[in-house]
């Protein structure tokens, strides 16, 4: 098994607070990995370490075959990232956003145009290619945002709550896009609060208080806890945490 993400005893502290407490995760190439946890469990901190926005306090992490701390430049070239906050520029058009990111990732002009056109066609938003992004509906923006994060064909893409606030139909379409990306060999590392989405993942982990409390395929997790849905697994694991954290 080739690993796209390799996390070993990763810890990140802020002063005396340990946000991520010695976690270890392996994600295989082409896998759709769900990274679950209640608010404040440490998901976003962990993702920030993996994409190089935060340095680990101890432990190590390799993404796309490179160490996130010592080879961050190599990592950056090979990853895509879509934050829970919206990633595109509102006062630019979809095409201008595409040109910007293509340029930043060093794609040739012809390539940017070809991939951009293909993307806009696939999304069915060619007719608004030159309208400001701020005028588009949220669902379109989210899908466009994901496609732009995939523009340079990254080995690994990190999606931090990508479907927040969009309608069920768009969420389904969004997940179809995620599967298509995984089928092309891109590893998808995704956080979500929608438990139905968690069921779509190949494998998932559930973080509680900075630690990984459970990890496995959705089916295995449900069997382990003897419940019928991931939602129940999540509530069981997260409840003691919320009780102690107040």
């Amino acid at each position: 098994m080739t690993l796209a993400i390799e996390v070993r005893d990763l810890t990140r502290r802020f002063g005396s607070f340990t946000a991520v407490d010695s976690i270890s995760v392996d994600v295989a190439v082409g896998e759709v990995f769900g990274f679950l946890g209640a608010n404040g469990a440490g998901k976003t901190t962990a993702i920030k370490v993996l994409i190089g926005l935060l340095a680990p306090s101890s432990g190590s992490a390799r993404v796309a075959g490179f160490d996130v701390l010592t080879q961050s430049e190599e990592v950056r070239k090979r990853i895509g990232y879509m934050s829970q906050r919206f990633s595109l520029y509102d006062d630019l058009t979809p095409r201008e956003n595409i040109t910007l990111y293509g340029g930043i990732y060093g794609l040739a002009d012809a390539e940017i145009r070809a991939r951009g056109d293909a993307m806009l066609n696939d999304l069915g938003i060619m007719h608004v290619a030159d309208k400001l992004v701020s005028t588009l509906p949220l669902g379109w923006k989210q899908k466009l945002s994901f496609s732009v994060a995939m523009l340079h064909r990254p080995d690994v893409v990190f999606l931090d709550e990508p479907t927040g606030g969009v309608d069920p139909v768009t969420r389904r379409q969004f997940w179809e896009m995620i599967y298509a990306a995984a089928a092309r060999g891109t590893t998808v590392f995704v956080t979500t609060h929608y438990m139905d989405e968690a069921e779509y993942c190949d494998r998932l982990s559930i973080m509680v208080d900075g630690r990984i409390a459970a990890m496995g395929t959705p089916a295995a997790l449900k069997a382990e806890f003897g419940v019928s849905s991931i939602d129940e697994v999540f509530v069981r694991l997260a409840r003691p945490a919320t009780a102690t954290a107040g």
Partner: peptide
């Protein structure tokens, strides 16, 4: 504020 800086910092820029 909009979170686009994170995207830039994650990019090869």
């Amino acid at each position: 504020e909009r979170g686009t800086l994170e995207i830039l910092l994650v990019s090869p820029l």
